[in-house]
C-alpha cells in the first residue's frame, strides 16, 4: 500500500514537473508537438530509470562507505553523461529505427534537470531500493503524462492570444493552471 501511495503521489500530487519544477526546459522548449513530447518522455524514462539504479548503488555502496557523500552531484552527473553516451552508441548500432525516433532527444537529456533531480531526490529521501524504483518510475510517468498533455494543449493554442502573452507567458500560465488542478488531486 505504501508503494502504491508513493506511486500515485509521484504521478499526480508530487508531479516532478508541476510541483518540483524538474525538467522544465524540455517542458517549455521542445513540447510544441505531441510526437516530440512522446519521444522526449520515452528517452527521459529510459535514461532516468537506468541512471537511478546505478547512482543509487553508487551512492549507497561507494560514496557512503568512503565518506565522500559531498561528491554526489559531480558523480551523478558523470554517471548520467556516460549513460547517455553509452545508450546513444547502443541504440545507434543495434536499434536503427529507435535511433531515428529517439536519437535527437537523447543528447539533450544530459542537461535535463529531471534526470539529475530524480537521482538526487532518491538518495536525499533515503528510499529503499524498491521505493526508489517505484518513485523513479512514477516520476517518469508523471513527467510523460504532463508533457504529452501540455504539448497537445500548446499545439492547439489559438493565434489570437494577446501579443504580450504569446509564447512563453501563455505556456507558463497554462502550466500554472495545470499545477492548480493537479494540486487538487491529493
Amino acid at each position: 500500500m505504501n508503494l502504491i501511495n508513493l506511486f500515485v503521489s509521484g504521478v499526480l500530487s508530487e508531479n516532478i514537473v508541476l510541483t518540483k519544477f524538474l525538467g522544465i526546459c524540455p517542458f517549455m522548449g521542445t513540447s510544441n508537438k505531441t510526437k516530440d513530447a512522446i519521444g522526449m518522455s520515452l528517452a527521459v524514462t529510459i535514461v532516468t530509470t537506468l541512471s537511478s539504479i546505478i547512482t543509487y548503488l553508487l551512492y549507497n555502496y561507494v560514496l557512503v562507505p568512503t565518506n565522500s557523500v559531498y561528491l554526489k552531484t559531480i558523480m551523478f552527473i558523470f554517471v548520467i553523461a556516460c549513460m547517455v553516451q553509452i545508450l546513444l552508441i547502443i541504440i545507434k548500432n543495434k536499434f536503427k529505427k529507435l535511433y531515428q525516433s529517439l536519437g535527437i532527444y537523447l543528447p539533450l537529456i544530459t542537461t535535463n534537470c529531471a534526470v539529475l533531480g530524480i537521482t538526487l531526490l532518491n538518495v536525499n529521501s533515503g528510499y529503499s531500493f524498491m521505493q526508489m524504483l517505484v518513485y523513479t518510475l512514477s516520476s517518469c510517468l508523471g513527467f510523460s503524462i504532463v508533457l504529452c498533455i501540455f504539448s497537445s494543449i500548446r499545439e492547439n493554442l489559438s493565434e489570437d492570444i494577446p501579443k504580450s502573452f504569446k509564447g512563453y507567458p501563455i505556456a507558463f500560465i497554462t502550466a500554472g493552471i495545470m499545477a492548480l488542478i493537479f494540486g487538487r488531486l491529493i
Binding site: 508541476l18 512563453y168 507558463f172 500560465i173 502550466a175 494540486g183
Partner: peptide, 22 residues
C-alpha cells in the same frame, strides 16, 4: 506561494516584460 502560483507569477511577469520590451 504554491507551485501553481510560481508558474502564473512567472507567466504574468514575462508577459509584462514582453510588453515593456516591445
Amino acid at each position: 506561494a504554491t507551485p501553481a502560483g510560481a508558474f502564473i507569477t512567472i507567466g504574468i511577469l514575462t508577459a509584462i516584460f514582453n510588453f515593456i520590451r516591445s
